[in-house]
Amino acid sequence: MSQLRIVIVGVGGQGVLSAAKNIGGAALEAGHGVVMSEVHGMAQRGGVVVCNICIGDLDSSLIGNGEADVILSFEPIEAYRALNLANKDTIIITNTAPVIPVTASIGEMKYPDLDDIFSAIGEVNSNLIKVAATELAKEAGTALAANTVMLGALAATGKMPVSADDLKKYMLSKVPPKTVEMNGKAFDMGVNACNTGKC
């Protein structure tokens, strides 16, 4: 059976974990082997959060250098930070909305120019997909749904071994009932953004 390795990166509080659970859970429901690594604890307090999802006949729950098939990044500079996990064929999907770390907001370090980040990624990988996930999520109802927009964008790449409809259905079965409509909308916006963009 084919294997698929997905890395999700973001910042504590962005919903990286729940997106990862939805991807893994939907793959399991479709009959695939899944093992993943989550982050709990200290890193969740505004630090970098990385989740690995390994689909197929694999025992390892971590993804090695250059092994990722997809990088789903909820924050633009975190996509750059995770590039060691990517190869030239990796599909890199990133949210374009920055989350400024305290080290930058107090002026100790500088948050880089995003165009520079995107061009640095583009120089080594031509599969970069940029999604204004936070903006779209706000349109759907709340910025908190940016992770759902990103899930939609992932589904639209066709890389997942489950259809966009099945992933959406699975995700909607896990969100609080009163947010179903909003999350459904956010997911579709992610699909559309990806379809009208690069992929």
Partner: peptide, 17 residues
């Protein structure tokens, strides 16, 4: 491992806070 080695862009660290 075919890992990507992009040109260097300085990133701010993101420690838990």
């Amino acid at each position: 491992d075919n890992k990507l080695v992009p040109r260097k862009v300085e990133l701010p660290t993101r420690p838990p806070s």
